[in-house]
């Protein structure tokens, strides 16, 4: 469904993303993990059209979308959330979600109905008439999710929707994400909360210093020495193995 082919992004002298490739089949949840500054959000921005790649191409359902504007990609069915939440602060929760719903529903009544339905799904039904600026962090994360869902995407890019939430809030939102997958939406998520990654993702990609260094099932990837070293530094994998042997 989505194919990122050897994509690179240079910011001046910095290679933010370096020859990264990624392929998603329809359905399922795929994780994108990696240490801070690995280029995960930049890769997301290239998939959603906010940043143009310096090199490489991006295909969605077989069509080359590398040069397309973000709104065109949203029409094609690519939805995204922002790591730093971007609510329309002056509008109510319902109006916020309706902006997304208007993409596929021209009439106001239909868009509002869709917004209400989505709000119910993500657990915002009680907040519909509140100004979006007054929501808690957890509420804002749900709102990001709801707005993106209201565009009825085929592919949903979630950029750290769990960051900043406490464990009980995370526990509440995981079933929501799983529910979205069960309805047939393909999900690609950037996440640092490993418990959630292990729990949700069937497959993960690991990005470090702009390069895709590993790919596979979460448990296998976490045991991969290259991944451990990317997070904990050079030689960490060997030290961990030695310690493990000593304790064993």
């Amino acid at each position: 469904m989505l194919a990122v082919e050897s994509v690179s992004k240079r910011f001046g002298g910095l290679m933010a993303v370096d020859n990264a490739s990624l392929a998603l089949e329809p359905g399922g949840i795929v994780g994108l993990i990696g240490p801070n500054g690995a280029g995960k959000t930049t890769l997301f921005s290239m998939i959603s059209g906010f940043v143009a790649p310096s090199d490489g191409r991006i295909l969605f359902e077989g069509t080359d979308i590398t040069g397309e504007e973000p709104h065109r990609r949203a029409e094609r069915g690519i939805g995204r959330t922002f790591q730093i939440v971007q609510p329309f602060a002056g509008l109510t929760v319902c109006e916020n979600i309706a902006v997304g719903a208007y993409l596929r529903h021209a009439r106001r009544a239909d868009a509002i109905a869709k917004a209400r339905e989505v709000a119910r799904r993500v657990g915002l039904a009680a907040e519909l008439d509140r100004p979006a600026g007054g929501l808690t962090v957890a509420g804002r994360k749900r709102l990001e999710l709801a707005r993106a869902l209201a565009t009825e995407p085929k592919l949903l890019l979630l950029d750290e929707v769990l960051a900043g939430l406490n464990p009980s809030e995370i526990r509440d939102i995981i079933p929501v994400i799983r529910g979205i997958r069960d309805e047939g939406v393909t999900i690609l998520m950037i996440e640092h909360v490993m418990q959630a990654v292990m729990n949700l993702c069937e497959r993960v990609y690991v990005l470090a210093q702009g390069r895709m260094i590993a790919e596979g099932r979460p448990a296998a990837v976490c045991a991969d020495p290259r991944v451990i070293e990317a997070y904990l530094g050079h030689g960490a994998a060997a030290r961990l193995a030695a310690e493990g042997a000593a304790h064993g």
Partner: peptide, 21 residues
């Protein structure tokens, strides 16, 4: 719809674009 999209652009243009505006 036009009005909703217009206000969305006023409030946050990037977020509006991501929603297909």
């Amino acid at each position: 719809r036009f009005g909703a999209q217009l206000v969305a652009v006023r409030e946050n243009e990037d977020a509006a674009k991501a929603l297909g505006v």
